[in-house]
């Protein structure tokens, strides 16, 4: 019993100290982002890696989610005789929730892991030390371009994902469920408000920040050797996924809470 309490206490202390470290790390980002030099070419490289190379994953996730959503809501609403609502349900679910959350989780798996692994490897092989002795701040060279790229790319990815997801719903609606294409599109746009899309993009921006911040943080705090890198990678994915789901709740509350 005392053992349990001891372990619990230890766990709490370690968690608190890690949260403290993370907050410090995030504040370093905001401090250094306004200071020279700015590594523009690194930013472009990261936009390519984080944004462009995530397109297939996000696109595939979106189209199949949109398709499933159309089938599910059709069969569900058929029991109430409300099949007409399919288009509206698809567009609202995709723009408000599924688009940003699924894209966020997929990118967390793809990008968060690779950032943690790359920076972690650089740390254990002394490349970060080498950067530092060549008068280059690792936070400016490695962290700021990645986080900025995350903040820029995620909303764009989500916007593209939204469109693809809605198209997925439309394909099922028109070719399988027999809706008239014009009516389906009309219904899609009828109840969609700007705030739905904006809320989704706000979420995406926050998720982009979370994924890249946690990836960088785990990389920099990576333990020794290949084991350390492996653990940092896992942690990056798990922690950023959880934070995405938690922040998703809070952002939703802020926008539509009352």
């Amino acid at each position: 019993m005392t053992n349990l309490i001891q372990n619990l206490g230890k766990f709490t202390l370690i968690s608190l100290s890690n949260i403290g470290k993370l907050i410090f790390f995030a504040s370093e980002f905001f401090y250094w982002i306004f200071r020279k030099p700015f590594f523009g070419n690194q930013l472009f490289r990261q936009i390519f890696e984080i944004g462009y190379l995530s397109l297939p994953v996000v696109g595939l996730t979106a189209i199949f989610s949109g398709m499933v959503l159309a089938i599910q809501s059709y069969t569900g609403f058929a029991r109430l005789g409300a099949e007409d609502a399919v288009a509206t349900v698809v567009v609202l679910s995709v723009t408000r929730e599924l688009g940003p959350v699924l894209a966020g989780l997929m990118v967390a798996g793809r990008v968060g892991a690779s950032i943690a692994a790359e920076i972690g490897t650089m740390k254990v092989s002394e490349q970060i030390d080498a950067l530092y002795v060549m008068s280059t701040r690792p936070i400016q060279f490695l962290v700021i371009p990645r986080i900025l790229a995350g903040i820029i790319c995620l909303p764009v990815l989500v916007l593209i994902g939204d469109i693809i997801g809605i198209m997925g719903g439309w394909i099922i609606g028109v070719y399988q469920l027999g809706f008239n294409s014009y009516i389906y599109i009309d219904r899609t746009l009828e109840y969609l408000e700007l705030i739905d899309v904006l809320q989704g993009l706000a979420k995406a921006t926050v998720f982009g920040f979370i994924i890249t911040l946690i990836g960088c943080f785990q990389g920099f705090n990576c333990g020794q050797g290949a084991r350390g890198v492996g653990k940092a990678t896992t942690n990056a994915v798990v922690i950023s996924s959880i934070l995405i789901l938690i922040s998703n709740y809070f952002i939703t509350t802020i926008f539509f809470g009352n």
Binding site: M122, S125, E126, M134, T136
Partner: peptide, 29 residues
Amino acid sequence: LKSIGVTFQGNALFDSMRIWENISFKLSQ
């Protein structure tokens, strides 16, 4: 730091950069 050159035990070459980028890194920064 500018007046110091270092080789690390494991070389610490930047593996995402080409040889010329590695060697000229300090100058180009």
